[in-house]
């Protein structure tokens, strides 16, 4: 059992005031067997034109994937929107016992493989599981296959921020050979699903990183495991899971709709520390 402190802070500055702003956030940890919140809160506020800061009421609930969502509405004009999500999590090694919904076998617009990827998936050789994980894990075909595919994605891709956008598909990133954690995850999801392994997109905060991270969960013998293709490893402790879905489009951190023609400037700071 380990304890981690996390803090997610994000500000959006609008170049001119906006109003009638609806928002929906996924910035609090998801309730999972391997992680329990010791304490957790979220604070959402806006700064009005006159400079006064206004704390907003937050609705709490879950989306259809069981992710914690926070949402609300602010009618009045404001030029800054701020989120602070903070807490302490108790964690055991990454492991979620449960079932796999069949939708996690279906490709989505973002993960649909093209012919090159299907060929690639067929050519990835199986390799022994112990190379990249602790010996205590059970060995099985699915695990070995998942690790092999993860390794193959890691070798095929170069981590290049800015080469792709949030809307880049697995096929596009694969052809480019470049991308960030989201692209790595989409490609691995695509290859896992091609191999008949239920797989879902997961995201959250990683110890020691300053930004959000995305990885993959795959289902093997009643257990979902975390697999991080951008770092080519199975996940254990120190990664705070926020949400999962079929692909990144199911778990955006912040979606908003407002009235106003404003340019946006975002700042983001994420901190995860063992305590």
């Amino acid at each position: 059992m380990k304890q981690f402190f996390y803090r997610y802070e994000s500000d959006i500055l609008f170049s001119t005031p906006v109003s009638a702003h609806s928002w929906l956030l996924r910035c609090m940890p998801k309730e999972e067997p391997f992680q329990r919140a010791e304490r957790a809160f979220v604070r959402v506020s806006v700064v009005r034109e006159d400079g006064e800061e206004l704390s907003l009421p937050v609705c709490h609930g879950r989306d259809a994937f069981g992710n914690a969502v926070q949402w609300g509405y602010v009618a009045g004009a404001h030029c800054r929107f701020s989120i602070l999500s903070e807490g302490v999590m108790r964690q055991t090694p990454y492991r979620i016992c449960g079932t796999a919904h069949d939708m996690f076998l279906e490709h989505t617009a973002l993960t649909r493989p093209d012919a090159d990827m299907e060929r690639f998936a067929g050519q990835v050789p199986l390799r022994a599981a112990e190379e990249s994980c602790e010996g205590s894990l059970p060995r099985g075909k699915v695990l070995e296959r998942a690790l092999s595919l993860c390794d193959a994605v890691y070798r095929h891709m170069s981590y290049v921020p800015g080469a792709t956008t949030v809307n880049t598909t697995a096929g596009q990133a694969f052809a480019l050979g470049q991308g960030v954690c989201q692209d790595y995850a989409h490609i691995l999801l695509s290859l896992l699903r091609c191999s008949g392994i239920p797989a879902r997109y997961a995201c959250g905060y990683l110890a020691g990183e300053g930004a959000g991270h995305a990885w993959v969960e795959f289902f093997d013998q009643g257990v979902w495991r975390g697999l991080d293709p951008a770092n080519n490893r199975l996940l254990s402790c120190g990664c705070i899971k926020v949400a999962h879905g079929r692909d990144s489009a199911d778990c955006p951190v912040n979606r908003g709709v407002f009235t106003g023609r404003a340019a946006q400037q975002n700042t983001l700071a994420i901190k995860v520390e063992e305590v």
Partner: peptide
């Protein structure tokens, strides 16, 4: 069911 365009996981 799950490959149908009309199936919306968001309604689960």
């Amino acid at each position: 069911v799950y490959a149908s365009k009309g199936y919306l996981p968001q309604c689960e």
